[in-house]
Amino acid sequence: MRAFLSQSEALHLLARSPLVIAAALVALLAIAGAALAPLIAPSDPYDLASFSLVDGLRPPAFLEGGDTRFLLGTDDQGRDMVSAILYGARLSLVIGLGALAFAAILGIGLGLAAGWIGGRFDALVMRIADVQLALPAILTALLVDGIARGLLPSGARDEVRIPVLVAAIGLSLWVDFARTARASTLRAKNEDYVQAAIAMGVHPARILFVEILPNVLGPLVVIATVDLASAILLEATLSFLGVGLPADAPSLGTLIRIGMQFLLSGEWWILWLPTAFLVALVVAINVMGDFLREIFDPRLR
């Protein structure tokens, strides 16, 4: 009930926390940059013809030897770093959001059903969730990726790259949603308004989605923001390990992997710029998640 805040109160809290404003700005800029990448990026990093080895390893424009065409320098292939980062972030965000949606739908669905039905079904779902929690996320993702590689013909692999990644990451994140949804459902089930609906003979699906779900949405939104950051990080990790996206369609993780080769060679921008971008994005999303938690749970204020 207290989660009901007037909008003005949320805005008031926002105005008092400069950190959250800064985080929101960073996230907004990063997301806008990624979304508008084809419009604002100086070149298309997927078009191999658009860059040449002659421009390779240029430092950022503000350094000696820099070229104003390449604001943040180029990598060894002559790829413009600004474009590579914007396109990389675009891929990272698409996969992160996709995985989040996958995890949320799977987790909330199973959690609501487990809490409502109870008994053996509940026990089964929750034990599977426990097993899932015991497996490190990266291991789940590697497993799904490996199975997909084995099952699919080699020609199809590249096309399903992104869906496989989404499923792999989503599978390792659904547990949080399921547990929260289940716990909230168990609590809401004993509330009089749900009892009233049961007594009146309302269809269970309607009770779950109209009566219960809106009441458990608050904590789920918070989990979603925190998990979005995790999903982006997980994608970066997988790509860094080489099981994610290939070098010709680089995500932020792939860029970092490429940059690793230049860690000690003096061309620092190839590694550190995508890394800094990734860190800024993830931190910003996490700070906003904490802020949302504060709004939905006034006890933390």
Binding site: M1, F4, E191, D192, Y193, Q195, A196, A199, M200, V210, E211, P214, N215
Partner: peptide, 15 residues
């Protein structure tokens, strides 16, 4: 039909 004791819990706050 039933009228419950606690009017704070018998109406769904989100509707």
């Amino acid at each position: 039909q039933m009228v419950f004791q606690d009017p704070f819990s018998s109406l769904n706050g989100r509707r």
